[in-house]
Design a protein around this nucleic acid. Structure first.
Lengths: 232, 232
DNA sequence: CGCATCCGATACGTTCCCGTATCGGGAGGG
DNA sequence: CCCTCCCGATACGGGAACGTATCGGATGCG
């Protein structure tokens, strides 16, 4: 914690303003990518926003792709962290509560969503990145699902297929986020989003017959699940 | 239908190979945008794929944005048309059947999905385009929902909120498409997608008490829907 | 306070792509 | 069969952004 790196055999030395420069570049990058779109964004644009010239950029990164990836991983990790925290804090009385906390932590941030959407599209055409995105999604699922499962169990509901619940929630989040952003002021979109989340939550769990617990069973009956007809 | 335009007062004349050129450019554009991403795609790249030089391009379009929009609208309209056709053909015995037909018509086309995803992200930053995309989504919902509703009714189920069902299905389609493409060979992703659709279909409908019809009621009971607690 | 080192600014040559202006071949019409 | 007018190819000038090489100020250390 001295602000500089040790000199140890061959290692570099100072690292003071460096970090700050990197940060400013990373922050500027988010704004640039959100406003101009990745792909239309130029090195110079990012530098201008950060108040630097390209010299600063090439001293810290070797390409726009690298900066983009670094920025995305940082924001994405931060989001995942916030999610964990929010879920840890939520007392998890009702599963609805936990889900609401998760949604609040993740939010439907316009800027961030645009960047993520475009990054995902980009990743779909770049095998290396595709794996990165897939891994992050998996991490999100694995953070979210156990907490929700626990909350559901406490509410007297069991989750037969946790993996399915996880991917359903992520899909619903992605899908409805677009809709919410496509219709800026629409209250309908937000309501539909929330409703869909609730439906999914209950569709992927069923009431545990035994141990009626103390909590009110919020609903009487269950969803169909007509065991795939297996026909075309 | 003579292949050329009438000369009437001041109108232009021929339009023979013109159409073919446009088509080749439009097709090349899809490939270019899918592979390189909109934004990284250059006019020259599109022309090269189509076997033209830039002269042909500027003679037909005034900008890449215009070509992009034209291409997207064409493909998107074609997709909507296919969807209508598939739904019209499906005898709609079971709602699952109708949904399956719809999904088959829409498909999860890698190329097309990437282009759409990026276009949507782009549209989110361009008010004019945002409205175009929103309108197209609405058209899709309005095509899909009545058919499914009818099929569900025939299967002895009523849809209380058609708008909600529509946006839920679109959201689920978008969200799960990404997942399927993120994990190329994954059978899980496909299964989860299908399962989620089924859940949504049943979660947004409930059995009609009267008129038990002739068709087997595929499931006994209903989903919770705990009337929003309205609490934070 | 002076020195070694880092780091971002500046300067430069290059590449890529744009958009326009002009040309020549070919498709229809008469 | 000629002749007109379209339309895509070619040629041209310009600008934007790239990546590198070098410089001078700042920074941290003794």
């Amino acid at each position: 914690m001295d602000g500089t790196t040790r000199l140890g055999g061959g290692a570099r030395r100072t690292t003071a303003r460096r970090a700050q420069t990197r940060r400013r570049l990373l922050d500027a990058a988010l704004r640039a990518f959100a406003e101009e779109g990745f792909g239309r964004t130029t090195v110079e644009s990012v530098c201008a926003r950060a108040g630097f010239t390209r010299g600063a950029f090439y001293s810290n990164f070797s390409s726009l792709d690298e900066l983009f990836l670094a920025m995305w991983e940082e924001r994405s990790a931060r989001m995942l962290h916030d999610l964990r925290e929010a879920l840890a804090r939520a007392p998890a009385a009702a599963p609805e509560e936990a889900l609401r906390a998760a949604l609040a932590a993740v939010g439907v941030d316009d800027e961030w969503h645009r960047v993520t959407a475009e990054f995902t599209a980009h990743a779909l055409r770049t095998p290396g990145l595709r794996r990165v995105v897939a891994a992050r999604e998996q991490a999100i699922r694995e953070t979210l699902v156990p907490v929700l499962t626990a909350a559901l169990r406490r509410a007297g509901r069991a989750v037969p297929d946790e993996a399915a619940l996880g991917s359903a929630l992520v899909a619903v989040h992605d899908g409805t986020s677009v809709q919410v952003l496509l219709e800026p002021g629409s209250e309908d979109a937000l309501r539909h989003r929330e409703e869909l989340f609730r439906h999914v939550l209950y569709a992927y769990s069923r009431p545990t017959p035994r141990d009626p617990g103390g909590l009110e069973p919020p609903a009487p009956e269950e969803t169909p699940h007509p065991e795939e007809p297996h026909r075309a």
